[in-house]
């Protein structure tokens, strides 16, 4: 009813100024009501399943909880000091699992970028069937981490002997790369590189294609070799794209969970693959310590927030740069 009235009011354009202000306030209320109608479905779902749970995670992180997830006793910041080893107990397993996560991303990120760059350079070759090859190089974006893990579990399995030659080469005393503490994390990282290859490739290719062709043209006229073109044109102009890719892959590798759960399934050989997200899963799912796991997830949020803010700053720079 109210809405209908205001529509009528709108049409009276020539109103005295005093009334006009009232109308515009009325109009504003109307616009707000209308907008609310449109954005409330999305907003309600986001509040219910993102914002409230997030705040509840923070709340839970200050309490000891029972197995049903109810708060039992206020615990102040004890969980945080425990995770970061500020309580002086000398138990550093959570700091170590953060370090394992960092190792993991130090393996995944450079490998991913080198492979992506190589594929993207190949995919800029000027031949007829290049679209066919591009589709193949992109293919891994359609393959889920779970499917890839099931396949790679067999690649690393002693029965297929597909990776036996690496074990022989390194003289390892093990049946599978996944069962040896010095190779397990690398094995998971290599598999992760394969699953993200398609995405990294497509981002890098887009970056190369955005470089103006006439720069290469004039470089060739000046007698630059292919290598010089790559070294002094492609690489510097691609740096923003590669930096962007680096941060994205770092964030993704900090969140990697599926491959650890399928390929390893527990702490792994000598905790060598116990990454932080998996430690959260263990506290949450296997030990039902909801308060403690929440504290860990808040720590993860802070780490990712730091990485994301670097990413946004970088994106800003990239926009100014071009």
């Amino acid at each position: 009813m109210l809405l209908k009235d205001s529509v009528l009011l709108d049409e009276r354009v020539t109103l005295p100024i005093a009334t006009k202000r009232v109308v515009s306030q009325h109009q504003q209320r109307k616009a707000f009501g209308l907008a609310l109608l449109y954005f409330s479905p999305a907003l309600l779902f986001l509040i219910a399943f993102t914002y409230i749970p997030f705040l509840r995670s923070i709340w839970l992180s200050f309490f000891i909880t029972n197995p049903q997830g109810d708060t039992v006793r206020f615990n102040a910041i004890n969980y945080y000091t425990r995770i970061l080893n500020l309580d002086g107990s000398g138990r550093t397993e959570y700091l170590r699992s953060m370090l394992t996560t960092v190792y993991f991303s130090l393996l995944v990120v450079p490998l991913g970028i080198v492979f992506a760059l190589a594929l993207a350079l190949l995919a800029t070759l000027n031949i007829k069937a290049i679209m066919f090859f591009r589709t193949i190089f992109t293919s891994s974006i359609a393959i889920s981490v779970a499917s890839a893990s099931v396949i790679w579990a067999l690649i690393y399995s002693p029965t297929t002997r597909a990776t036996q030659w690496i074990i022989d080469l390194l003289h390892l005393n093990t049946h599978s790369l996944l069962q040896h503490s010095s190779t397990a994390l690398f094995a998971v990282a290599f598999m992760t590189t394969w699953t993200s290859l398609g995405f990294n490739f497509i981002v890098t290719l887009a970056g190369i294609q955005a470089i103006p062709k006439d720069i290469y043209e004039s470089a060739r006229i000046d007698g630059a070799s292919n290598w010089q073109s790559f070294r002094f044109i492609t690489l510097p102009l691609l740096t923003p794209t590669l930096l962007f890719l680096m941060l994205i892959s770092t964030i993704q590798s900090f969140q990697a969970f599926t491959q650890f759960n399928v390929l390893i399934g527990n702490e792994g050989p000598d905790s060598a693959t116990d990454v932080f997200v998996f430690a959260i899963f263990t506290a949450f799912w296997k030990d039902n310590r909801y308060g403690f796991a929440s504290a860990m997830s808040v720590v993860l949020f802070l780490i990712l927030l730091a990485l994301t803010s670097i990413q946004y700053r970088l994106l800003d720079q990239r926009v100014h740069y071009q």
Partner: peptide, 19 residues
């Protein structure tokens, strides 16, 4: 509010959502 929800990683909401 809409944009900010992107800053909250899935892992930090999963426990209350599960409960």
């Amino acid at each position: 509010v809409f944009l900010g929800s992107l800053m909250i990683p899935w892992e930090s909401t999963i426990i209350p959502n599960y409960l």
